[in-house]
Amino acid sequence: MLVVVVGGSGSGKSEYAEQIAMNLSENDKRIYLATMKVYGESAKKRITRHVKARQGKGFDTVELAADIYKVKEHVDVQGKNDTVLIECLSNLVANEMFLDDMTQKSATEVTDKILCDLKAVSEQFPNVVIVTNNVSEDGIKYDAGTMSYIRAIEMINSSVCRMADQVFEVVAGIPVRLK
């Protein structure tokens, strides 16, 4: 089962995705694959809030800022309901795309790489839940690098949602089923 959860900042998408992952995994493994690199105070605060929200829900955390196919090196998948929750695609794209201050990979290259990695993960885990963001509706024309980043996220979102069994958009904590 592949489930995609999309939403904006502070929409409650993470909490809903956790709920889905808990239901899918039943008594088997729950892996939380965190893709965020910690930069600055607000990132720290957000991570603290997420960690707190996950407490007691039985997730094992694996931190991979890139190359998420490597999750198999950290987890021994055995159960028929083993579930990985990937949080979130927008961080993953940033990490895969912006290698350092000077180098940026193209949107197509990053899209191909991440879709390939996601395929590897979904072949390994019976259940995959992916959290992603809506980053394309603020109407601002950013610099070329940022526009390419938005393009990559939306290409990946579209491809992943095409493969997904279920897609939800979370609005003010309310899941709206899109697929």
Partner: peptide, 23 residues
């Protein structure tokens, strides 16, 4: 909340808090 996360910490806070209060 549907856009690129701003660089300015206060803008990030504004978006996050508005979202949380909306929930």
């Amino acid at each position: 909340g549907n856009g690129i996360i701003p660089i300015d910490e206060n803008e990030v806070r504004y978006r996050e808090l508005t979202g949380r209060l909306g929930i």
